[in-house]
Write a protein that binds this DNA or RNA. Structure first.
Length: 458
RNA sequence: GGCGACGUAGCCAAGUGGUAAGGCAGGGGUCUGCAAAACCCCCAUCACCGGUUCGAAUCCGGUCGUCGCCUCCA
């Protein structure tokens, strides 16, 4: 029985999808800059959700958007003297490269906000008809804005557990806006001079931030979806507003059955974020510790707890991944070594069932790795156990592959290793150590075992 | 001010009533020509105070400290 913490109820609930296929929507990025490892955390977490559901036999349909138009994109593009399309393309490509190297399974659909504008206009029009939204003049544009009328939906605030009164106090009104009340939010923004814009019943303009997710989830997944994921910082206002819009428009309640949110990455005591400038990019992280290392780093902490970043925690994750790789990939004879794999399978599943407890799941992998190593040391065949380790590591998105970049040089390395073996047989240790040290300087590590010498690239 | 989270060994981090998983680092062994890898052993009473209980890291009350959201944010 799989259980998830549902932000809506604040309870751990048994997961039961509504139909045969689990429908899952995850909030994507706004591609105006390189993604940092905080983003990596979120996408690794939801990739694990998806992989685990698939391992348990569920079919999963996963949709993730690109917010390819918003204030930051327009501002950045203007500054760099690029079009918004050029800017967006550059960072989407970078994002996709990052995801590939993190071994993230791509979503079934990757919709772009700018390609779904007619659908959004239809929803906004529907909301106006039903009295949930209103057109208002803008002082920043010759065209109108459209706002969602928060007071029209009684349960507004149910996700973030806030009352409408408390929201009024903190709400902000930009100069130039003509909202009925401060908590109302934009569905449509009238175009300012020289901004990208689309035609609409309210003149030229562009969609507000929240409406795209409503339009895309409705279009690709239907009125009611099983899982909606994202970072904890999206709970308010983004997801709160998304619920309000979507439920008001479709009438299907609840719009989302399980709301899952991951916590943030902290640098020291602070949240990693672009505005604080205290981030490192996914690419930097990948270069330092590789895809497995980064994923394992994310998984050492439960997804709903803040994840501590430091060079030391990242390095520890890399060393842990190396340990698993050695256990899984050191050649061995067929057999399970007498290890009770079913017990490990059950422990792994129990940990993952329990609100995706990856720290405990990892503990199972490390325990299994230790058993494999011990049995192999005793001369037992453990290839079957290794295959199982690779299987459950794969559920966590870990590949545990040997580095392959030196493949072209392999014949030369093999030759040196062979010569060194002969030198060692002749007790020419000074020379043989020179070969080992020299190769170490080229990131090739030699290991002398009972069956001869093996090597690997770091 | 409103809502919420957290404080477990040198570092990271599970565990939410029955006497502390796992990883990294460190120490001691085995193996090795020496290493490396691997294996074995060692390394915490859970911020503090009070309470409930046969029994609490785990429940209740309080104190101190840290952080997040409420504005763009994974």
């Amino acid at each position: 029985m799989i259980r998830f913490t549902n932000t809506l109820s604040r309870q751990v609930e048994e997961f039961k999808p509504e139909g045969d296929t689990v429908t899952m929507y995850v909030c994507g990025v706004t591609p105006y800059d390189a993604s940092h490892i905080g983003h990596a955390m979120s996408y690794v977490v939801f990739d694990n959700v998806k992989r685990y559901l698939m391992w348990k036999g569920f079919a999963v349909k996963h949709v993730q958007n690109f917010t390819d138009i918003d204030d930051r994109i327009i501002e950045r593009a203007n500054r760099l003297k690029m079009t918004t399309d050029e800017l967006v393309e550059k960072y989407i490509n970078m994002y996709c490269d990052d995801m590939r190297d993190l071994n993230i399974i791509p979503p079934d659909v990757y919709p772009y906000a700018t390609r779904e504008v007619p659908e959004m206009i239809e929803i906004i029009s529907g909301l106006i008809e039903k009295g949930y939204a209103y057109e208002a003049p803008s002082h920043l544009s010759e065209w109108s804005d459209v706002y969602y009328r928060v007071s029209a939906k009684k349960d507004y605030g149910k996700l973030s557990h806030r009352t409408q009164d408390s929201l009024m106090a903190g709400a902000r009104v930009e100069s130039g806006e003509e909202k009925e009340t401060p908590a109302d939010f934009a569905l449509w923004k009238g175009a300012k001079k020289d901004e990208p814009s689309w035609d609409s019943p309210w003149g030229k303009g562009r969609p507000g931030w929240h409406i795209e997710c409503s339009a895309m989830s409705l279009k690709y997944l239907g009125e009611r979806i099983d899982i909606h994921g994202g970072g904890e910082d999206l709970i308010f206002p983004h997801h709160e507003n998304e619920i309000a819009q979507t439920e008001a428009y479709s009438g299907a309640v609840p719009f989302v059955r399980y709301w899952l949110h991951n916590a943030w990455v902290k640098m020291g005591d602070e949240k990693m974020s672009k505005s604080l400038g205290n981030f490192i990019t996914i690419r930097d992280g990948l270069n330092k510790v590789g895809g497995d290392g980064l994923r394992l780093w994310v998984m050492t902490s439960h997804y709903r707890k803040p994840l501590s970043f430091s060079e030391a925690t990242l390095e520890a994750a890399k060393n842990g991944a190396d340990r698993l790789r050695t256990a899984a990939r050191t050649p061995s004879e067929p057999g399970d070594g007498g290890i009770d794999l079913n017990t490990f399978r059950e422990r792994f599943a129990a940990a993952m069932d329990d609100d995706l407890n990856t720290p405990q799941a990892l503990a199972v992998l490390f325990d299994l790795a230790k058993e494999i190593n011990r049995c192999r040391d005793e001369g037992k065949g453990v290839a079957g156990a290794q295959a199982f380790l690779l299987e459950i590591a794969g559920v966590l998105g870990l590949k545990l592959e040997e580095g392959g970049a030196a493949i072209e040089a392999a014949p030369f390395v093999d030759l040196l290793v062979q010569i060194r073996t002969e030198l060692r047989a002749a007790k020419q240790f000074a020379l043989s150590d020179r070969i080992r040290d020299g190769l170490a300087g080229l990131s090739i590590t030699l290991e002398d075992g009972p069956q001869g010498t093996t090597w690997k690239q770091d």
